[in-house]
Simulated assay, not measured.
Amino acid sequence: MRMYGLLLLGLLLAGCGESDVQTQIRRAVAIEQGDECHLCGMVISRFSGPKGEAYEQGVEEVRKFCSTRDLLNWALEPENRHARQEMWVHDMSEVPWDKPDDEHFINAETAWYVVGSSQTGAMGPTAATFSDQAVADAFASEYGGEVLTFDQLTLGKLNQNNHGTH
C-alpha cells in the first residue's frame, strides 16, 4: 500500500505543470556592467548607493533600478502597485556604499528605509536600506534622515526628502 502512495505522490508532482513554475518566487539577479535603470535609463553600475530590482506579475524579465529611490518611485505609483510581485534592495549593513554587492539583496517589503540622509546615490538623494532596524537607526543618527518601513513609504515622503542634508 505504501508503494502505491509513493507512486500516486510521484504522479501528482509530475502533474505540476508550467503554471506552478510561473508562481514560484523569483530571486534577485546580478546587476551586469551595461544594465540600464528601468525608470531613467541610466547605466546602473556607474553609481554608488543601494540599488533595487523588481518583477511584475506576468513579466519574465527583472526590472533593475539605479537607486532605491527610482525603485520606490516606480513601485509606489498607483498603476504599478497591483503589478509588482517581488522586490529587492541592497542590505547596506552588509555592503560598502560605493559598490554594493549583489550577494546581499533583501526583500524590499521587509527592509528598513532611511529617507532624507546626506548619503547620495544615482542622481542625488536615495533611500538607504537595511535588514535590521537598529542598523538603520544608527545610520540615521550618523547621516540624518527618517527611518521608515516599506508600508510607511509614500511618494510624498520620498520626494519631500529629495534634497537630503548635505
Rank of each mutant, 00 (worst) to 15 (best):
F139W: 05
G145V: 09
A28H: 04
S141W: 06
D132R: 11
D98C: 12
P50W: 00
R2F: 15
L13T: 13
I106K: 00
T110D: 07
Q152Y: 07
L7V: 13
D35K: 09
H166A: 11
M92V: 09
Q57A: 12
V95Q: 09
D101T: 15
A136I: 03
F130I: 03
H104M: 06
T110C: 00
G164W: 13
E146S: 14
E36I: 15
L12A: 15
H104V: 14
N159Y: 06
Q85V: 07
P96R: 09
Q33V: 01
A108P: 04
N80Y: 06
T126L: 05
I31G: 01
L155G: 09
S117E: 00
D98T: 12
T154V: 08
G145E: 07
P100W: 11
P50L: 03
F65G: 02
S117M: 05
W112Y: 14
Q22C: 03
Q57Y: 12
L8A: 13
C16E: 12
N73P: 07
V21F: 05
H163E: 00
Q22K: 11
W112N: 02
E79K: 04
V21M: 05
E18F: 12
Y113R: 03
S67D: 05
L11A: 14
E146V: 11
N159M: 12
E109Y: 06
T154K: 08
R46K: 13
G58I: 04
I31A: 01
G121K: 06
V89G: 00
E77D: 11
I25L: 03
C40W: 10
G49W: 03
L158P: 08
E79D: 10
V29P: 00
E103G: 10
N161C: 04
V95K: 06
T120M: 11
L71R: 07
E36Y: 08
G49E: 03
D151V: 05
G164K: 15
L8M: 08
N107H: 06
L12N: 12
R46D: 11
M123W: 03
D102W: 10
G124S: 02
M87D: 03
M1E: 09
S19A: 15
L39A: 15
V21E: 07
H163P: 02
E53F: 08
G116T: 06
S45Y: 04
N80D: 04
A30W: 06
F150G: 01
V89A: 00
A108T: 09
A128L: 01
Q33E: 11
S141M: 13
G5T: 08
A14F: 13
T129D: 12
E77L: 10
E56H: 04
F150R: 07
D101P: 08
E36N: 11
N159G: 13
A128G: 00
G17L: 08
A30Y: 05
H38N: 09
L72H: 09
L76C: 03
E60V: 00
N73Y: 14
C37M: 12
R84M: 14
D151C: 01
F150M: 07
E18K: 10
D101R: 15
G144S: 10
H38P: 07
G164P: 08
R46G: 13
E18M: 13
E53T: 02
R26P: 01
L8R: 05
